[in-house]
């Protein structure tokens, strides 16, 4: 079974939006989106159970190589990174256009996503990609099994647990409760560099500029502003007396 895992390279720490471009500043250090690590782990577990291969697919700046390599170090077999200046500033549909083209060329049995992007809080990409690929989709999967050419996902909604089944090939988004991701071993880290990694431009995927990037996006960011002011927050370090301080704080407000 061939499994593609879509991963996003997201900025670490001091996240800021560039006031000039109104895009997220991606110039600093980045890392693999923590939610996507669960998707990588689930793909590796499926491969260990059933055989097959795991390919990592990412769209992002050249620095996204770091995130791709993390997934390879965990155990993925190969990687495809789509990097192109013309793809910068892509919104949902512009991103889905590119990922769908890349995934079509890989022809995986399963496509896995993490449950959301840690930078944009987006939690819709799989649905857009599944529509582009004409494949069934199951999201928020907290438990996944494969049998008889079908994939079954148990997932949580506002009302309880659903169990949904779909024929393979299918697109899935897994929740962060699905597994505890492994740490890359030293051997995995050393071996990651020598695994097949392709970096492609939009034209190499057969895409024209108009379908992605800012030109291919239908949403715009108009302005940035400060959040509404909140009440004061007090933050203390526990030096052994934190419990007393909490009680004082609650007592002043007549809550104990």
């Amino acid at each position: 079974m061939k499994i593609a895992v879509c991963v996003k390279h997201v900025p670490e720490q001091s996240k800021r939006i560039d006031p000039a471009t109104k895009r997220l500043d991606r110039s600093g250090e980045g890392a693999i989106n923590p939610f996507d690590v669960h998707a990588v782990e689930e793909a590796l577990k499926l491969k260990e159970d059933r055989g097959g291969e795991v390919v990592v697919v990412s769209m992002g700046p050249a620095g996204a190589q770091d995130s791709v390599r993390k997934a390879l170090a965990m155990g993925a077999d190969s990687a495809l990174l789509i990097t192109d200046e013309a793809a910068a500033g892509s919104d949902l549909v512009a991103t889905a256009n590119v990922l769908a083209a890349a995934l079509e060329s890989e022809a995986p049995d399963l496509v896995l996503f993490g449950q959301q992007a840690g930078d944009s809080d987006g939690a819709v990409l799989w649905a857009a990609v599944a529509d582009r690929l004409h494949r069934p989709v199951i999201s928020q999967v907290a438990n996944l099994s494969v049998a008889d050419g079908k994939v079954r996902g148990k997932r949580q909604t506002e009302f309880g647990y659903d169990v949904i089944e779909a024929p393979i090939p299918a697109v899935l988004a897994v929740s962060d409760a699905i597994n505890e991701p492994r740490y890359p071993s030293l051997k995995g880290i050393m071996g990651a560099r020598s695994k097949p990694q392709r970096t492609v431009s939009l034209s190499e995927l057969g895409l024209e500029g108009g379908v992605t990037g800012e030109a291919g996006s239908k949403t715009v960011v108009q302005a940035l502003s400060d959040p509404p002011p909140r009440g004061d927050t007090v933050k203390i370090e526990d030096d052994g007396s934190a419990a007393e301080k909490i009680v004082e704080f609650l007592a002043e407000r007549k809550l104990v």
Partner: peptide, 18 residues
């Protein structure tokens, strides 16, 4: 959970901004 998946799919189908 449902509406997000519907909206994401509809955006792709219509080539619309979400």
């Amino acid at each position: 959970v449902l509406a997000a998946d519907v909206a994401g799919g509809l955006a792709a189908r219509l080539g619309a901004g979400l």
